[in-house]
Simulated scan of single mutants.
Amino acid sequence: MQSLHVSRVFEADAATVFDVISDHAGYASLPGVRRAWLRRTGDAHRDGVNAERVLDLGLARIVERITEYEPGNALGYRIIESPLPIEHAGARLTFEPLPGPTARTRVHWRSQLRASTPLAQAPVAFAIARQMAFAYGVALRIWGRRLR
C-alpha cells in the first residue's frame, strides 16, 4: 500500500477553503481536467456523501465517490473508476484552522492506493502515488491563488 500526503496553508478561513475544494465544478479549472460534473448528487448536499464526481481528462475519465463531507473540517473520497491500474483505498482532506490575527487554514491531503497489476506492484504503485502527489500539490497551489 502506498500512502501520500501533501499540505498547504491558505490565507482564508476553513469554511471558505472547504467550499472551494469541495465544489466539483471547480475541478475543471485544474490542469489536465477538461470537464467535471456530478454523475450522482450527494445524499444531503449536492457535493456531499455518495456524490459521484466525474473528471474528464480527455482520453480518460476518473470517477470519485464522496465518502465524507463535513463542511470546514473534512472531505473524503474514493476513486471508483479509473484507467489507472490501482485500487484506491481512499483519500481524505482535513482543514486545520491556524492561530493568528488573520484567518489561515492548513489543508492536509492524504491518499492510499495499491497497484492492481499482476507484476511489479510496488514500483507501479510508487510511480502512480508520486504522480498523484504532484497533481494534488498543483491543485492546492491553484486553489490557493484563487483564494487570494
Rank of each mutant, 00 (worst) to 15 (best):
W109E: 03
V49C: 09
T94G: 05
D23Y: 03
V49F: 01
E96I: 06
P83Y: 06
L84F: 15
E68S: 08
Q112N: 14
T105Y: 01
A60Y: 01
S111Y: 04
R39D: 14
P83I: 05
I80A: 14
E52F: 02
G48K: 06
V107L: 02
H88V: 11
R104W: 09
R40G: 04
G100V: 06
G26P: 13
S111E: 08
G42L: 00
D43Y: 05
A25T: 15
A74I: 05
G72P: 11
R92G: 00
I79Y: 11
P71W: 06
I79P: 11
E64G: 07
E52C: 03
A103W: 04
V54E: 14
I86Y: 12
L84H: 07
I66A: 13
I62L: 07
A28R: 11
Y69W: 02
R78E: 15
R78W: 06
H45K: 10
R78P: 11
R39K: 15
A103C: 07
G48C: 02
P101Y: 04
R46Q: 11
S82I: 09
Q112D: 15
L113H: 13
R35Q: 10
D47E: 07
G58Q: 02
A60R: 14
P31N: 01
L55V: 07
P71H: 10
L93N: 10
G58T: 05
P101N: 12
W109Q: 03
A91T: 13
G42K: 04
H108N: 00
R106G: 01
P97V: 09
L75Y: 09
D56N: 13
P71E: 08
A89W: 15
L113S: 13
I86E: 13
P97F: 00
P83D: 01
H45Q: 14
D56A: 05
W109P: 02
L30T: 07
A44M: 00
S22D: 03
D23K: 12
D56I: 09
D47F: 00
L75A: 02
N50G: 01
Y27S: 06
S22V: 00
R104I: 05
I80W: 06
W109V: 04
Y69D: 02
R40H: 05
P31S: 04
S111L: 07
E52D: 07
L75T: 02
V107D: 02
Y69F: 01
R65E: 15
L59V: 14
T105R: 05
I80G: 08
D43T: 14
Y27E: 11
R65P: 06
A51Q: 02
P83T: 02
I86C: 11
P71N: 12
G90T: 00
D56Y: 08
G72N: 10
